[in-house]
Amino acid sequence: MSDQHPLHGANFPSARDDLRDESNRPAAYKLAYTDQDFLLRDELRGLRFQLELQKPEVTLQEHGIESTVVIFGSARFPSPEAAQKDIEQAQASGDPARVRAAKRAHRNSLYYQESQELARLITEHSLECPSEEQLYVMTGGGPGIMEGANRGAKEAGGKSIGLNIVLPHEQEPNPYISPEFCFRFHYFGIRKMHFMLRAKAIVVFPGGFGTMDELYEALTLIQTGKSRRVPIILVGHDFWQKAINLEFLRDEGVISPEDVELVRTVNTAEQAWQFIADYYKLSPRACPRC
């Protein structure tokens, strides 16, 4: 018997109250929201868009998460410890090509380490700072740079968010994402919208097509005024100097001179975090090592 006062409560049963075992019912008789075959029809794509937008949104709102630092970067960069093992195995194989690839991966594992350190700095600040300065690390939820960032947040004692995507070759979420904030998407577009909805800074480590897509999506939204301006920070001078040339685009007249100033390039996690802290005038403890 319910203890609820008779003046309170809904007059109508909820959808959950009406839920029954529908496994043996004819398709036409099933409640629409329990009929998977119906929900997966091409005509229902718009509804599935809305569901992918709403599910993470409702969860993040319920937990009071308003501000994030989004960290993008390659899924292919290993942790330093994994890279060291790969070098040892490559050297034992005697295959020169494998040794070269292992050494390259070991060199790039520095970025994994920097993403881990950046997430640690963000999370330590957020665990100690006033509530209005709380920031949560958000990544694409996969391996590589994403794993490093989620790992750094977890090792600092905080929570972080991962937005995983269904791919032809299944990508599993990394084990460091907070389970209650580990989301999976079918649609790239909705996933990218969630990256931008709460982003107060975007930090981009070296990466390939996916990373470039995410970077240019953010730049386009800010350039066109569809999104408020937030810091966009590229980590790794040497990589980004070769990978993109905004000055060339400016000189060719395809972007405005001020568009070049939308990004800041740094080399370390500490520099990236200090830029964010300065941009928002965060409390002095925002940079524990400074």
Rank of each mutant, 00 (worst) to 15 (best):
S115Q: 12
G64E: 05
K226W: 14
G207S: 00
A153R: 03
V137F: 04
V58G: 01
D42Y: 03
V254S: 10
E81R: 15
N174H: 12
I145R: 11
R76D: 04
A101M: 12
V266E: 06
A277V: 01
L249R: 00
N150C: 11
P257G: 14
V137Y: 05
E114S: 09
S79N: 10
E88P: 02
P179R: 15
K55M: 14
F183I: 08
H194S: 14
A269N: 09
F248W: 06
F72A: 01
F77G: 01
L246V: 00
I122A: 07
A102P: 10
H5Q: 15
P96S: 05
P284W: 07
N164E: 03
A32N: 11
K154I: 00
G210L: 03
R25N: 06
R289P: 00
L40K: 14
S23K: 14
P78G: 01
H106D: 10
P6S: 08
K242V: 01
A15H: 09
N108D: 11
T211L: 03
G141H: 09
L127W: 02
H63E: 10
P13F: 04
Q134F: 00
A277P: 01
I165C: 07
S115I: 07
G9D: 08
K103S: 08
E133Q: 14
P56F: 04
G157D: 09
K200A: 02
E132V: 02
L215S: 00
F183S: 06
R48T: 10
G141D: 08
E81M: 13
K159N: 15
T268P: 06
F49Q: 13
S79F: 03
Q171P: 07
R41N: 11
N11A: 13
A105F: 00
T68H: 01
R45I: 11
A201T: 01
L47A: 12
G157P: 11
H5M: 08
T220P: 10
V266D: 07
F77D: 04
T220H: 12
R107H: 12
G9T: 08
G152E: 09
A32L: 12
P231G: 07
E57M: 07
L221R: 10
S131P: 05
C290E: 12
E57S: 09
F239A: 00
E180Y: 05
H125P: 01
L60V: 05
L167R: 11
L234I: 00
H186D: 05
P78T: 04
P284N: 09
P175I: 13
A149Q: 11
E88M: 10
V166A: 14
Q116C: 10
I255R: 03
F209D: 04
R98V: 06
T139I: 03
A15D: 13
A32C: 04
Q91L: 12
P143S: 15
P173F: 03
R264P: 00
D3F: 13
I177S: 08
S74V: 01
P96H: 07
P173Y: 06
K55F: 08
Y33H: 13
E52F: 10
L39A: 15
F185P: 02
E124C: 07
L262M: 15
I122N: 02
T220N: 13
